[in-house]
């Protein structure tokens, strides 16, 4: 399975570390091409075009990729039982993690709270 989105994909643990260390604000959605994941990718694609969120790097990662263990096994995701796992990093640290479908409004709420300019 591949992620058929227009987002930039991260494919390895090294990629994840690179993107979170080189960008102050990062959102990574780790999922499959399933019903609960697609709306989150779509919202991210829209926000990526939005001037208000130019300070955020949006990425996705395939949940079944063995290298996605960096997200799947993150302590912030313990107890998560719904795809996608969505991680928000500020200065390389996890500031928020959510499980399952999130609406654009819910995502914006997190971005505005955690990545305020």
């Amino acid at each position: 399975m591949v992620l058929q989105t227009n987002l930039q994909h991260v494919a390895s643990e090294k990629d994840v570390l690179e993107v979170i260390n080189n960008n102050e604000n990062v959102m990574i959605c780790c999922g499959r091409m399933g019903p609960m994941c697609v709306p989150v990718y779509d919202a991210m694609e829209d926000m990526e075009k939005d001037e208000a969120y130019k300070h955020v790097a949006f990425r996705d990662m395939l949940f079944d990729n063995p290298e996605a263990a960096i997200i799947r096994n993150a302590p912030e995701c313990s107890g998560f039982m719904g795809l996608p796992f969505t991680m928000y990093y500020k200065n390389g640290k996890v500031v928020k993690a959510t499980s399952s479908l999130q609406s654009m409004e819910q995502v914006k709420e997190v971005l505005n709270a955690e990545f305020a300019k």
């Binding site: 499959r32 399933g34 019903p35 609960m36 994941c37 107890g79 998560f80 039982m81 719904g82 795809l83 959510t98 499980s99 399952s100 479908l101």
Partner: peptide, 17 residues
């Protein structure tokens, strides 16, 4: 508990159970 035990998609989340 959505995503933490409650799900609306068996094909998405079945393998967590």
């Amino acid at each position: 508990f959505s995503g933490k035990g409650i799900s609306y998609c068996a094909t998405c989340d079945g393998d967590f159970f």
